[in-house]
Amino acid sequence: MRARDVPSGRVGGRVGGGPAERGRGAGAGRNGGGGGGEVTPSAAVRTTSAGYRPRRDRLWFARTRAYTLFVLRELTSVFVAWSIVFLLMLVAAVLDGSLAGFAALAARPWMIAINVVALAATVFHAVTFLNLAPKATVVRLDGYRLPAWMIQGGNHSLWLVVSAVIAFFVLRGFQ
């Protein structure tokens, strides 16, 4: 199932039909058939001009767990964008000298709620995106292929180190 293996389900060429579009190809194939036998006028009308289009399944992402996870992972990008907006607001406040105002805004309950969700989303994004690296990068040492867990482990260690460095400079820095 590609939705589980690939970062966004469609590496190696755009679209080609997400899960939702899959029905169409099958429909088109069916139209091409019927070469033998007698073609009645009504069948000809049905298979030539408009073609057969199955109805779009509007809830395709709710049909299987894999699709739901795929969509949830894709939607983390909305919170990645939000985090950047929030960060830019913080930077603007620091440069303006209005950090207190920003802190008051950030302490509003709805703002905290958004940011808790944003935290969950960015962590989910980080875990899934960093776990993906071995699929994109094959490291060979003297013919020995580095196993996936080593690359993933390296990525997660790097994530930890970068987070620690950022936290250090934000909270303390070299006094």
Partner: peptide, 13 residues
Amino acid sequence: AALVLPVLVLLFG
């Protein structure tokens, strides 16, 4: 985004 955003949101958000 994976490397820097979670810690920033955790701290400031």
